[in-house]
Amino acid sequence: MEITLAILIGLLYAVGAYMILRRSILKFIIGIIFLSNATNLLVFISSGIVAGKPVFVKGARIDGPLADPLPQALVLTAIVIGLGIVVFSLALKYKFFSETGTDDLDQLKKTDE
């Protein structure tokens, strides 16, 4: 099954990379979302995946192989931070459009007007 997920990750990366190369800022932001989703998945599967064994414990004894909690904790953090980035860049994008009236990243060449 992991091979399917790996292919999915690769495809998400490709789509994300393609999107951030577009000139439209909105597409750029969507690209960032795809890239962060792909990265989250990559970290998630990197320590091996276990179906249907969430890491709930009672006591020190562990019955059978459980899922690995560490990547999950990392990815959880990453998802939330990703949300921060997306929302902030959306706000930036909004401000940029209301100031300049354009959606084109190529217009962002100069630092001062």
Partner: peptide, 16 residues
């Protein structure tokens, strides 16, 4: 994008 995505896919497969 395909070059990049393909690379990342290989990375994912290896990381497993």
């Amino acid at each position: 994008a395909l070059l990049f995505g393909g690379g990342m896919m290989m990375l994912a497969i290896k990381s497993i």
